[in-house]
């Protein structure tokens, strides 16, 4: 595995510039945190496609909706906690209900803004937004996943929420990896347990699979980058082929990836799921890896959960 470390927000910023150069309809709507969301190059090189509304996220959502009615493809770029919760009703009323082609692209997802503390960490966003009709919800697992999924989001017509990391995480894909919105990427095949992860925890799922292999346990690892629409077929295949599933996410265990997977499994009437994620509690200022560990989101925790399921 390539251990190069890079934050997925960099993937967002780099891809937006590429897309914006090719397509003059691509707009970025910033809310005064372009610097930390990596849109500075876009603003400098494509000023005619850039808007900064200041510290006014609710207005950003509405301005983007208005731009979309005029054929633009606006990306509202801010932090996850503002882009999902501060703007939530604006997203519902002016973006999802009219089904407008607006992308909400947010850095600082999960506990990745670690040192900033609970106010800036966002553990609720994907769950809240996946309950909105017409919305697509995505979290890429690394820099290249971020680039390809931003590209895919720009191509699809309709509202889409994308969530990126503030902190650097390992690069696990290469430049040519293929992504399709709504279709999980199987990164590893196995027969004893299925580990379904997304975002910055996919790397942990892969590491856990390696650890388990040493004990003769093989794991299927899925990168479920899109939690809505969920790749239901991939989840059903895990139940039918393996029956034991662990979900891993840097998000509240309520209503995120684990919740979405459980909805499918519960209706199948067979299979068992263990959810690993934020334990329905606010974070604190602490190193990123510590915040994950406090919530039981480590390679060791995933491996231990697998062994428990196999008992």
């Amino acid at each position: 595995m390539d251990k190069k470390m890079i934050a997925t927000r960099d993937g967002l910023g780099d891809e937006l510039v590429e897309l914006g150069k090719k397509n003059k309809s691509i707009y970025v709507v910033d809310a005064d945190i372009g610097k930390s969301c990596k849109t500075t190059t876009f603003a400098k090189t494509l000023p005619e496609q850039h808007v900064n509304v200041g510290i006014a996220e609710q207005n950003a959502a509405g301005v983007a909706a208005g731009l979309a009615t005029c054929g633009k493809v606006p990306f509202v770029v801010t932090y996850a906690v503002f882009g999902s919760l501060r703007m939530c009703e604006q997203i519902r009323q002016e973006i999802c209900y009219p089904n407008l082609n607006v992308k909400i692209a947010c850095s600082h997802g999960g506990v990745t803004p670690a040192n900033d503390g609970a106010s800036h960490q966002c553990i609720e966003d994907m769950g809240v937004l996946r309950t909105l009709p017409n919305m697509t919800v995505i979290m890429p697992a690394d820099y290249w996943a971020a680039r390809r999924l931003v590209e895919a989001a720009a191509k699809m017509d309709g509202p889409c929420y994308l969530r990126f990391t503030r902190d650097a995480i390992p690069v696990i894909y290469d430049e040519n990896a293929i992504f399709e919105i709504g279709k999980a990427n199987q990164l590893k095949e196995g027969k004893d347990v299925a580990i379904i992860a997304n975002g910055d925890t996919v790397r942990l799922a892969l590491e856990a699979a390696e650890v388990l292999e040493k004990d003769g346990i093989t794991a299927r690892v899925l990168d479920m980058h899109t939690i809505k629409p969920l790749d239901v077929d991939a989840v059903k295949a895990c139940v039918n082929d393996i029956g034991k599933i662990i979900t891993v996410e840097d998000h509240n265990i309520i209503n995120g990836l684990g919740g979405a997977v459980c909805e499918v499994v519960a209706e199948m009437g067979k299979g068992i799921v263990k959810r690993i994620g934020i334990q329905d509690q606010f974070g604190q200022s602490a190193p990123y890896e510590r915040l994950l560990a406090i919530n039981g989101i480590t390679t060791e925790d995933i491996a231990a959960a697998a062994k428990t399921l196999l008992k």
Binding site: Q58, N59, G62, V63, G66, L67, A68, C70, G71, P74
Partner: peptide, 13 residues
């Protein structure tokens, strides 16, 4: 409270 923001987006476009 939301429509005026959309109007701003339209005028800007």
């Amino acid at each position: 409270g939301q429509g005026l923001s959309c109007a701003v987006g339209m005028a800007l476009a």
